[in-house]
Nucleic acid binder design. Structure first.
Lengths: 337, 337
DNA sequence: CCGATCCGTGCAAACGTTTGCAGGGAACTG
DNA sequence: CAGTTCCCTGCAAACGTTTGCACGGATCGG
């Protein structure tokens, strides 16, 4: 029964015996059409299964009610939750989300962003891995851009305050008595990884701790693979780029018979839901992801309304202490036990 | 430097001293424009930062190179991985993905699907929670629809074979000696939950086992909350709706001091990456999610090329046995140990 | 040197929708 | 009953792009 041809406004009009404009008005809820005609047109439209052509509508109206979004990796629960917040706000204002995943590839992200520029009325770059030059190019484009978890000029900026977060992690570990810390890093192109690294370096030096930096990544497999190197450093506490990496590392430590937190403490950023269900439950930095998304929409809607960008927002994460962190083993710290 | 006005074809033409059609031809790579003009127009377009208006282009071309996708919950890693496969295929053919999340709400899913119908050239419904009546309505719409993990007439169908999967789970548990099984179910509107329930009921009866059905859900919290009820059934093995639920349940069992698999075995569907990192690692049914997405695109592209729908595809999952399943306790089964 | 050929470019129509403007008829007022 | 008002509806232009068609100039052969 599905007709090959798409049913247009003119088809409805002909069938209903009215003009195109009348149909258009009825379907857009105009009050100035008589009651009978309104009902009649509505029923005809319904019977024919009329659906407005999005492209034509947007062309005429000159607005595209679509927000393009790029994320490095949808499989990291961090991003879907940001998208939930963003989507809720956007939907409330009649905007859709056009979500694309770059697969952690900066070049692919550039392609996607350029693509989206011609199909969306605004752009949200989540944890952008773009090189600065390319980021500037996108920001110079015709549509407003919000960066989540990355700072930039000429853009809306909504970030987790990883400086504060890193400080909280180190304070927690220092209080427990740890002095030798390993950091299992994230993707090289990650801005937030850079933030954390710099902060960790500065603070460990200042606090008289020792920091070992280890190549990591963004997934559980990366964490598992980093296991041997972590152990080799002799660190008593490990901070990982995110919870997925931490969970992978926990798994390796378990398989290898290293006790957590008995022999080594593990902690991380993000506090995604499964962190609470890890064995042992993971000490992690909770950030308000949905709030991050809502704020991103807030910035965007202000800008779309013609205002200037609101000042950058930094959301301070809060440390959720669970069982994966504890005092260092007797020979690894100052405690005598 | 960002000009408020969007730069159009006519702006480039005026600046380059040519006509609109010439610019259009150059930018679309037509061969029939002289070399010099081509270069000149290109450079002018680049200088002005011209970006084609997507809406106008699509209107004129009459095709929307966009595939709308609905998923119940992006936070379940199952879906992002399907999207990866789908997106890869679609991108290769010059299509974009327009992803929407229904939040497990059938009404919201209906709204989204209708929305998408006017903005996309095809639809992919992942694990649709739509009521049959509404599903039919969408299928009767003007654009082709693929259902992932749900069967339907007049649509492309790509499913995991949960019948076979459920059989494998039961066989595995039966071989270990279990006789009393609990099933922690999924969302009421889930088609795949229905499939599993029916199969589990039929097979347990046939195999002389006892099945207890428990209300569950789709997230870790649902699994955690189901803990007491699971324990009350006295079942020696639990099957859960998905791995997130299983991980939540594992966590409750651990908190409560119930040994897994010593006192009760736990197993589930999907085998998402974290399943391997659960404590104990989860016995689960691996399904090829990316392949599911690729096949969905395969069906769609065949249909978009004008062919009929390919016959429905059922992907058989394979059981990945890990440490969360074992023999039942001595008093719980026929084995004497 | 004139006519035919061919290549490069411009003109204008069309895609499906919205909306300002105008026109026609009914109702109401004087 | 004529004039005015007001409500409802239709006409046509416009949004930015693509593309069939036509046209003008250069090139070439006879």
């Amino acid at each position: 029964m599905t007709s090959g041809r798409r049913v247009r406004l003119v088809d409805v009009a002909r069938e209903a015996g009215t003009s195109v404009s009348t149909v258009s008005r009825v379907l857009n809820g105009s009050e100035q059409i008589s009651f009978e005609v309104r009902n009649h047109v509505r029923s005809v439209a319904a019977r024919l299964g009329y659906r407005a052509d999005g492209a034509a509508k947007e062309l005429k109206l000159g607005r595209v009610r679509t927000v393009g979004v790029t994320v490095p990796d949808l499989a990291n629960p961090f991003f879907p939750e940001v998208l939930k917040g963003l989507g809720a706000g956007a939907r409330g204002a009649g905007y859709r989300l056009l979500i694309s995943e770059s697969g952690e590839d900066p070049d692919e992200e550039l392609r996607l962003a350029e693509e989206l520029t011609s199909h969306a009325s605004a752009l949200v770059l989540c944890s952008s891995r773009l090189r600065p030059k390319h980021l500037t190019k996108i920001l110079d484009g015709p549509i407003p851009v919000v960066c989540v978890n990355r700072t930039a000029e000429q853009a809306g900026v909504v970030c987790v305050d990883y400086r504060s977060g890193s400080r909280q992690l180190l304070d927690h570990l220092a209080t427990l008595g740890h002095r030798r810390i390993a950091y299992v890093g994230g993707p090289p192109a990650s801005w937030s990884d850079g933030q954390r690294r710099r902060t960790l370096r500065t603070l460990t030096r200042k606090m008289g701790m020792r920091l070992e930096e280890i190549t990591g990544g963004w997934s559980g497999d990366h964490g598992y693979a980093a296991g041997p190197e972590v152990l080799a450093t002799g660190a008593t506490a490990v901070i990982t780029f995110n919870d997925l990496v931490a969970i992978g590392l926990l798994s390796w430590l378990h398989d290898t018979g290293v006790e957590v937190p008995g022999a080594v403490s593990v902690t991380s950023y993000d506090d995604i839901p499964v962190a609470a269900y890890a064995r042992p439950p993971l000490t992690s930095l909770r950030n308000q992801r949905a709030q991050l998304g809502r704020l991103a929409w807030g910035h965007l809607s202000a800008r779309l309304a013609g205002d200037q960008w609101p000042p950058p927002v930094m959301l301070t994460p809060t440390l959720t202490v669970r069982a994966s962190t504890g005092r260092p083993p007797a020979d690894g710290g100052p405690d005598t036990r």
